[in-house]
């Protein structure tokens, strides 16, 4: 059996994931990523609300981390396209995300991600994505 990368190491490989402050937990083979709240992640100071770009990026990292972990990749998969639906504004609190690998082919993977805050039944955003798998 080949060596399986620890989830923390997957995130450590991405400087931008460290910049956002993304953390992760592992339950079985399923990762839950956590984006701890910080003031600098705010896009609308009046509401206040997390920047939409923060939520999109967090979900993209979640998809990459789940792919890298489940498929035991040594290289980060490259995004081909992502589509983000914003359902509710992101409040000034911690955000969580979980990915589902719909299909992992030889060259392309299709991944869905859902992000939520205080109630998983009320997601704040969803993401559909394709990744290019190499190396």
């Amino acid at each position: 059996m080949s060596h399986r990368e620890l989830p923390e190491n997957i995130l450590e490989q991405i400087p931008f994931a460290r910049f956002l402050g993304v953390k992760m937990e592992l339950a079985g083979n399923e990762l839950t990523l956590k984006l701890p709240y910080e003031d600098r992640l705010i896009g609308n100071p009046v509401l206040p609300a997390l920047h939409g770009g923060v939520i999109g990026a967090f979900m993209e990292i979640t998809a990459m981390a789940q792919l890298a972990f489940s498929e035991n990749f040594t290289h980060m998969p490259k995004p081909i396209n992502v589509s983000v639906q914003y359902l509710r504004s992101g409040k000034a609190m911690d955000t969580f995300a979980r990915a589902r690998l719909n299909r992992v082919g030889r060259t392309i993977a299709n991944v869905d991600v859902i992000a939520w805050q205080d109630n998983k039944e009320m997601p704040i955003a969803t993401l559909q994505s394709h990744f290019l798998l190499k190396g």
Partner: peptide, 23 residues
């Protein structure tokens, strides 16, 4: 450097672009 997505190539993270595209 702290916005890089792939340290081997030094390419910016797609997620860093997401925010300025949205904004």
């Amino acid at each position: 450097a702290d916005l890089i997505g792939d340290p081997e190539s030094g390419v910016l993270a797609g997620g860093a672009l997401t925010a300025i595209l949205d904004h």
